[in-house]
Every structure is written in structure tokens, then in C-alpha cells.
Amino acid sequence: MFEARLIQGSLLKKLVDAIKELCTEVNWDISNSGINMQSMDGSHVCLVAFNLRADGFDHFRCDRPLTLGINLGNLAKILKCSGSNDIITMKADDNGDTLTLMFESEKQDRITDVDLKLMSIESEHLGIPDQDYSAETSMPSSEYQRIVRDLSSIGDTVNISATKEGIKFSAMGDIGTANITLRQTSSADKEEENVKIEMKEPVLLTFALRYLNNFAKATPLSSTVQVFLTKDLPVQVNYNIQDLGYVKYYLAPKIEE
């Protein structure tokens, strides 16, 4: 038996909206420590992983580990039936073939319950080694969103370089070129509005903007985003979900043959 009650139900809706375009059919691994998902996109170029900790829920019960095969598009359709202030409860039996979702209004005077059909999904699990990052940047998630959106009007790919000067995003296309450089800041009113750069070595990597733009769909989940760059390795774009967990995206760099 699995049961999880999330007071801030809108977080679940935002999470599904943040990943559903990259991954359509995914396995959620449920254990008494929480809910985990890892899934590659259809082209096997990027990976999406999330963790929702059991202690982030108002109530969490999982008698034995379960794998729930979910069509995220269908789950998103169901979550559209929830109100933005609804409390969401998820339930599944150990050998069941449905996930029950219950939406309770704030005043608990309106209750919706929906059964989502589960599916059997074969999925590969990638082992991601602990990496020593060349550069780690933290910035407002709205800033990241704006950079990748703005550069998408210039080109399809972006060069990201981290140096002592800051972190520079460059795009080139038929209409011209654009560079956006962020410098470290410490003067913002709120800590999360600052740009922080920790650099061990200068690094330059090239990525497809289409994916980086897709990662920005997680912006409503967190006020900040961390971008980890490592020479010759996938970039990690990390959104921490306050008091609940995280969603992380990994994207393979484009490389010279």
C-alpha cells in the first residue's frame, strides 16, 4: 500500500509540467524514503531525475517498494482537474494497476478522485558518477529562463563558458551572434537573487538550446537554479524544490568529432 498526501498539491502539478515534454512514459520508484524517477528523453540525449522525500509530505506510507509505470501526459491531464490550492493525495495498492489521485479543496468542501491506469514500462537506469565539477553556478531561475529563451531567437546551440570573468552564454545563427555574461553578485536584497560562481578550472561546452529551454519549464518549482559544468561531460541543471526534493536535468554536450 502506498499513500502520500501533499498539502501544497500544486507542486506535483508543476513537477509533472516540468518533465512531461521530455519524458512521456516513466517509472516512479516508491519506497519508504520517498518517490524517485529517472528517465531519458526519447532521443537519449538528456536525462531527467527527480526525488520527492517522504518527509516532505504531510503523510507518507509505503509498505513495500513499488514501481508505478506512468504516462506523464495522462497524469498531467488529470492534474489539470486540481485547483491550485488543492491538497493532493496519491494512493496505490501493492499489486494494483491504477494510481488514485484525490484533490481536496482548501476548505475540504470539494473532493475529486480520479484513477489513472498504470502501465508496464521497461526503462534503463543510468549510473551517474559523483563528479568534480569544473564550475558551479547558482542564479535566479528566472534569469536562466530568460537567457536560454533570448538566445533561442539567435541560434540552435549555445556555448557556455565559465572563466574568472563570469559565466558567458554565446549563440550564433544566420541573423548574427549574441553573448550574455553573468558576473558574480553579492548585493541583491535576497540571497537567492545573487549569481554565485565557484570555478575550479575554466570550461567551455556546447549544448542544444532546445533542451536547455525545456529544462526552464521547472522555473515555477524554485527561485534558483544551479548549473554544473564539467569538461567533456553532461551539464547538470538542478532545481531544488523547497522542503520536498529536487528535479535535475542532464544534457550531453555536443562534441567535435
Partner: peptide, 14 residues
């Protein structure tokens, strides 16, 4: 246009 290698080329299977 630079080629786009698949992710498993970077990460091993668990």
C-alpha cells in the same frame, strides 16, 4: 553543426 552524442556514452549503466 557539431554532432550530439547520446547520454549513455557519458554515464555507465548502474
Amino acid at each position: 553543426v557539431l554532432p550530439q552524442p547520446p547520454l549513455p556514452a557519458f554515464f555507465t549503466g548502474a
